Simulated scan of single mutants.
Amino acid sequence: MRATFIHEAGDVRVEDAPDPELREPTDAIVRVLLACVCGSDLHPYHNRPPSDGPASIGHEFLGVVEDVGSEVSGLRPGDLVVSPFVYADNTCDFCRAGLQVSCRHGGYYNAEGVGGGQAEAVRVPQAQGTLVRLPVAEDSPLLPSLLTLADVYGTGYHAAKGGQVGPGSTVTVIGDGAVGLMAVLAARRLGAERIILMGRHRDRTDLGREFGATEVVPERGPEGVERVRELTGGDGSEAVLEAVGLRPAYDMAVGAVRAGGVISRVGAPQYVEAPIGWDSLFSRNVRLAGGVAPARAYIEELMPAILDGTVEPGRVFDRTVGLEDVPDGYRAMDRREALKVLVRP
């Protein structure tokens, strides 16, 4: 089969790879119909050293079950399924608590013996607990929106849940990438009254307004923080959803949150330390929440509104490439020529 590998920073290639095979009785093989490039895929695209060697890449996909192991029930060949970006048995104590990213028998795609999602097919460990059947046909126009359940929509929703967003909330979302826009959509779905989107790319913030943002702040740094405080009567927001993962975004979150509020981080942190002491969080009773999103916990909750057309999170995909052109998709996202790239193997 053909699959995507990253060799070093800036060097993504589509190459021949062995066809995936069942290794454990809990495995399934999925033929990929749709995949995509995640903003977090750009971190190794920027930083991966040559000494690490090539590795498969991609963790968001949906497709058709081709084969299942002897211990897999509830799934059969021909089923259309979506996979969250972390596989899990969905039965251990962590999974039952809604924390599938900490599953005792789970793990991440692209690890040893487990391929990536930007490929023609994927071996899915713990398939029964991981894969969710989709009640639509393979040619459904809803597939791009359903693909967002694999990661980006669930991650935005996790940000809003971590920020305790509810009816009447005032929320600031930092970042106009796909996750930030999904955080806007999720905050609106949870009843937020005001949603301030911090972003300066007009095409993205316009989509953010359609998803529910009530104000847009293009300024960054101290100027951006000051603008958020002006919009909130000097107090800042009850919840700040940080969807970038860079230190300047975290610092803006600290500045934009009100006393007693919550900072919910879902942008994969690209910094080692951040201040949490007296002058930043402690003296104002600010809570720090968020983390790796347990997307599997949210799929059944978020899917109905996609199926009935209430929401269209698939609108974040603004470019589509074939599998062989995935390197072009990385370049487009890196240059901010595309918000999020859809891949059709």
Rank of each mutant, 00 (worst) to 15 (best):
S145K: 08
G154V: 00
V152H: 02
R209S: 14
Y153M: 13
A186P: 09
R200M: 07
D139E: 14
T205P: 11
G154A: 05
H201I: 15
V179C: 09
G177C: 06
A183C: 04
G177I: 04
A183D: 03
A213N: 11
A178G: 13
H201P: 01
R133P: 08
F211D: 08
D176F: 05
Q164L: 12
K161T: 11
T155I: 02
A137K: 11
A186N: 07
G212R: 10
T148P: 04
E138W: 00
H158P: 01
V152C: 06
V173A: 13
A213S: 14
G168E: 08
V152W: 01
G163D: 03
T214P: 09
G162S: 13
A150H: 00
T170N: 02
G212A: 13
T214W: 05
T170A: 11
L134K: 09
S145L: 08
A183N: 05
L149N: 04
R200A: 14
Y153R: 07
A183H: 02
V136K: 04
T172Q: 01
A186V: 05
A150W: 01
E193N: 13
L149H: 03
A187L: 06
H201G: 05
A213K: 09
V152Q: 03
A183E: 03
D203W: 02
T214S: 14
T148I: 04
F211I: 09
G208F: 10
